[in-house]
Design a protein around this nucleic acid. Structure first.
Lengths: 337, 337
DNA sequence: TCATCATTTGGCAGCGCTGCCAAAATTTGG
DNA sequence: CCAAATTTTGGCAGCGCTGCCAAATGATGA
């Protein structure tokens, strides 16, 4: 197309120049038409559009973005895809980005700050319009790169600490505290905790800290705890509660690091005939759909995951004012407390 | 850096030329060092690496890929992020891609073929190394573009039909058939079906078709069915089963389009004191973790989601031989049948 | 009618990198 | 020691597009 003699293996590839030639206009005019930018006569517009259609022209964003220095990509680093909450978040991000003609490059850190640092560097190489990260904790190297790059940055999911640029999320500490106060108000005093491996899930740790701090307000503390070694899951919750109860300490309520874990705990109670909430109350976190529709809806805290994604995306696109937006959370009073 | 007078608002940006100059070598040599390609003397290598480090050089992949015609991006279009199965799949894809120095650009079609077509065009504009799609059903326009682009393509999740290039997945028809045979073998004869909206979820439809075809082998058919209007969820399953039973038709087993739906059904039975499986047997699909750890593990079919992602990624990178790989599935005999 | 102003247009220099090629430096062997 | 073979190196033309600028065209009013 754009060249008659061309290496045999290479796919032709219609270029903007081809379209311009076919339409009988200059390259710039063709470019203006295809991007709806600048003023173009109806005549030219029609000719270019027809030519582009006829040649099945596919713009090359690599070239376009390079020339205009800046891409319409947004880099996103999440800790995991296995945990339902992050897809929910991504969903929100994606919706807003797509509506604004942006595209998301997604990377998964597996809760490893070192991996995150490498991924950030890798994403910055695309000269993205912005970056969205989860949490406020990053390696020093990552922070340095981010600052140096000058890329717009949004940190989501955590407002307990200082961020690098923009922040959207909620206070995990306060979420934990709300759980504690709810249990205290309901009269529970012998409270246990079942969590998943803390390895990297700093926000779960913050919740637990907030939980204990709030208990301490009424001179209480967790009487037993059981921390799994793996990631959060129904199975881990089920086994965690089993182990907690096997410790022998008397417990009248249990706080879980997560709804999956709590649902596992609930399943354990069903299996063993433990009456919920009379013998044992259960409290989760996240307000997952599946847990809300159990025979006894799980008492939990609903976190604004999709909303957070939407706001994060809008922030990264510069459509949101504040530097820090706390979206809060909501107590879901279920039947398990 | 690379230019003394530079528009004030623009971020400097260290270029390869800057690194080369600082290291006292030519651009090509610097490029070779930073890409580990071609032969370079130890001396030059050290100088370039030091300079890159000192200047905090960040390569520009936009330029790199444009120059070398071809990117290390892989485009992925999935129907939804809300359904747990796709993150599982993505997880597998991502793992392999990252290990091979590739990056994934993810787009979500929301089960709309028209959206999928637009997203495909958008992804192709990045001149990706390859594309991964879910399912075999695409608009004619999308197929034409894909064929014309010559991009390597992998279609995942479905082997019931003809694909455009490479395929990895399993037969949804056969999965449905296996479910039916299992129920028949166990002696159930009055079988109902609770599904979610078919709008776009062609694979769920294929399963149901396979299910009915297998029932027909023993002169049976579904005696009642209830199809929700929304997406698959625990709530939809719970309400679906409630409606199915309210129809009045006597039913001794129920097949669900999905594990979420089936878990919802199970919750309904627990709430209403319906004995499972004596009064009603339940059969799901996907083998989700949460359903396997219910008091009575759900009978289901485990699908190789992460594995499928890994194979899809390997196929797209050209590391896998066959054009079509059927990964099969596995019957999970739980306590609900 | 022609000068004046607004609109539309095309040429061309880059964006930062890679690939090619010829030149320079180094090694080898007679 | 020198010629030949090998390794290493740098210059420079693109990759396909956008942004800038000056030129061409069209519209307006005296």
């Amino acid at each position: 197309m754009s060249d008659t003699k061309r290496p045999p293996g290479t796919f032709p590839g219609v270029t903007l120049a081809d379209v311009a030639r076919a339409a009988g206009v200059g390259e710039s005019t063709a470019s203006r038409v295809l991007r709806n930018r600048g003023s173009v006569s109806e005549r030219s517009r029609a000719k270019v559009e027809a030519a582009a259609e006829r040649l099945a022209y596919l713009p090359n964003r690599l070239a376009g973005n390079l020339a205009s220095t800046g891409s319409n990509l947004v880099g996103i680093v999440i800790p995991s895809l296995a945990n339902v909450v992050f897809p929910d978040f991504l969903s929100g991000v994606n919706q807003v980005l797509e509506a604004n003609g942006h595209q998301s490059v997604i990377a998964v850190s597996e809760y490893s700050p070192r991996r995150e640092e490498a991924l950030i560097a890798s994403l910055l190489a695309w000269r993205p319009a912005g970056l969205i990260l989860v949490g406020l904790d990053h390696t020093e190297g990552a922070k340095a790169r981010l600052r140096a790059s000058g890329t717009r940055l949004v940190e989501a999911y955590d407002t307990d600490g200082v961020g690098l640029d923009r922040i959207v999320g909620f206070s995990n500490r306060n979420a934990g505290a709300m759980a504690a106060r709810h249990l205290v108000t309901r009269g529970y005093t012998r409270i246990g905790y079942v969590g998943h491996s803390i390895h990297g899930d700093i926000r779960a740790v913050k919740r637990f800290e907030g939980f204990r701090a709030a208990l301490a307000e009424t001179e209480l503390d967790v009487v037993a705890r059981e921390i799994g070694t793996g990631t959060s899951s129904v199975e881990a919750g089920r086994e965690g509660l089993a182990r907690l109860l096997a410790q022998g300490t008397e417990v009248d309520a249990c706080y879980f690091s997560n709804d999956d874990m709590a649902l596992g705990g609930y399943f354990h109670c069903l299996s063993r005939g433990i009456e919920v909430p009379n013998q044992l109350a259960l409290f989760g976190h996240n307000g997952l759909e599946m847990a809300r529709h159990a025979p006894q809806p799980l008492t939990s805290i609903r976190t604004p995951r999709a909303k957070m994604g939407e706001v994060a995306a809008r922030m990264v696109l510069g459509q949101e004012q504040g530097r820090m937006i706390d979206l809060g959370f909501e107590l879901l009073e279920g039947g398990t407390t």
